[in-house]
Amino acid sequence: MPRVWKFGDAINTDDILPGKYAPFMVGEDRFHTYAFAHLRPDFAQGYQPGDVLVTGKNTGLGSSREYAPEALRKLGLKAIVAKSYARIFYRNLINLGIMPFEAPEVVDALQDGDLVELDFEQGLLRRGTETFRLRPPPAFLLEALKEGSILEYYRKYGRFPGESAEG
């Protein structure tokens, strides 16, 4: 069963992937193995696809480097539950197809190492017999995610979600 990896407030993109391990520095095939290299050196090795990242306030502040969340996706991350997000990081998550749930009370209730199940469609997170309800992201973003990502959406329709067809 997937587990929770819990971090605190203000996890920045230098924490998630230090600049010196950018794909163009160490190679496209290796950069993800340095995720959280400074903060939690056991993370990249121990993370199993589907495990849930749980973080505090202002998650992902700092650099616009999309390869930080991309490293997490490469490890198999599909969702983050945070108290709040920094702006660029939030867009990057949507663009990569990683679901950015915002639920401060759920973050407080979860502990590192908890075994959980996450139902994306329903927005339900289960721990044992407990069920937590997660508020889904805005409709605009869900529309893009339905196609897999905003890239796929744009390729298919030639416009952004919500933009008129002739736009």
Binding site: R65, E66, I88, R91, N92, N95, S149, I150, Y154, F160
Partner: peptide
Amino acid sequence: GMGATDIALAAAS
């Protein structure tokens, strides 16, 4: 500032 995907979409569109 934006990430690579947004920037690519902006260049394409």
